[in-house]
């Protein structure tokens, strides 16, 4: 079943130099495992291909039902150097929530995940 992250998670993003971070938090604690399993580092790197210049790192925070992604080279130099509207990476959060993941039907049903409308 196709699941859109926006329907199972919320997020906030910020900056450190030319790196944007996106923290993605499951809307329900039991959905955290879905994030951990399907929102992988390489999946996120593919998602942002063409938008960021560097690597992606992923960290897990099961205590907050959250994943933290570092998107390197995401801010056109970052800070005051950047010419981007989103020079401080404030809305990479919702850009990540556009991602659609494919969860096996049985698991999606068991967890009552909302399907993409």
């Amino acid at each position: 079943m196709k699941i859109r992250l926006l329907d199972i998670a919320h997020a906030r993003s910020g900056d450190k130099g030319d790196t944007a971070n996106v923290g993605v938090i499951a809307l329900q604690p039991r959905w955290y495992d879905v994030l951990e399993q399907f929102v992988t580092r390489s999946r996120v790197a593919d998602h942002f291909r063409g938008m960021i210049e560097g690597d992606v790192e992923r960290y897990e925070l099961p205590n907050l039902n959250a994943l933290n992604f570092l998107l390197h080279g995401a801010l056109d130099g970052g800070g005051t150097l950047s010419l981007k509207t989103d020079a401080q990476g404030k809305v990479y959060s919702t850009a990540l929530l556009r991602m659609v993941i494919d969860v096996p039907d049985a698991e999606a049903k068991r967890l009552a995940l909302p399907a993409v409308r």
Binding site: G14, N21, I25, N68
Partner: peptide, 11 residues
């Protein structure tokens, strides 16, 4: 939770 992950690096 949203504020905790704001500007986070290696947690």
């Amino acid at each position: 939770s949203e504020q905790l992950v704001y500007e986070m690096g290696d947690p």
